[in-house]
Design a protein around this nucleic acid. Structure first.
Ligand code: MN
Ligand code: MN
Ligand code: ZN
Ligand code: ZN
Lengths: 140, 140
DNA sequence: ACAATAAACGCAACTTTGTTGCATTTTCCA
DNA sequence: TGGAAAATGCAACAAAGTTGCGTTTATTGT
């Protein structure tokens, strides 16, 4: 139910010391309700007519939500960020899957934990970013 | 020596049924001489004054070189493609490393070959794209 | 309830990266 | 060496995202 996501969103925002504005609540509720990682454009599309929101405000709200660790953003080969709520299941680092036909992005659960990526001498490991590409069930 | 790379570049281009124009030879020679994956901008910068080349021509030449499998391009989180010559060592799929401070990108040799990324039912695996992030030796 | 204040917003302009259409030039081969 | 196909240059366009700044709004203390 949408109202539940809105309540959850509002609480999460306030718990992080931010102002619970209509825009932020709406955006986070959309991301909480969505199981795929979606683009700025797609979020804009899903916003109700009752909640007009400037492009820039949307960008800034997303930036804030990422900072506060309420959502994460995914790099893609089409040069478009995709955003997804941080759920417990996907608590930390995880890989992503991107359909090469419909561009849909989902979060996977694994990530190769081994840090012995034998980097050149003097290099320091920080994190891994991994995308599995293929066809989703709809596009197969 | 630059001249060697130019000769190699010319031969590679002709072996692939393409016209060995000054632009293509110059671009491929630059990429053969470079051990890092570099951006369109960086390639433009490295072009000698004696070889002025339009932005668009550079883009199209890079596209052609990728098609012919003479170079590969790397996705990055800064929305900028980076290009690198295909050497035997890095023959096919491989991971990349990107410095989070200076944005330098190098090619790594490994890639987790296991395809059991237990994707959702009905999904089909195609390929993996993996970037290790961290600090390079200069930035540590 | 209400005013003060800092945070968030909206708008316009800008930047960066990459693409497209089309006329002109160049390469290659017969 | 001339003609066809390929490659180039230029101008215009497009998409995604950023910046500056004046205005509005959520929160807090009274
Ligand atoms: Mn994810
Ligand atoms: Mn590489
Ligand atoms: Zn799909
Ligand atoms: Zn570095």
């Amino acid at each position: 139910m949408t109202i539940d996501f809105r309540n959850a969103a509002e609480e999460l925002i306030q718990h992080n010391g931010g102002r619970a504005t209509a825009g932020r609540i709406g955006i986070l509720a959309i991301l909480l309700a969505e199981q795929h990682a979606i683009t700025h454009r797609e979020i804009e599309h899903r916003l109700p007519e009752s909640l007009p929101l400037d492009r820039v405000t949307l960008y800034r709200a997303l930036e804030w939500l990422v900072e506060k660790n309420l959502i994460h953003k995914v790099t893609s080969d089409d040069r478009v960020w995709r955003y997804h709520a941080n759920r417990e299941v996907h608590a930390h680092r995880h890989a992503h899957f991107k359909c090469t036909r419909c561009a849909q992005v989902i979060c996977l659960d694994d990530l190769p934990e081994k840090r012995n990526w034998h980097l050149p001498a003097g290099y320091r490991f920080q994190e891994i970013e991994l995308t599995v590409k293929g066809l989703c069930a709809d596009c197969c």
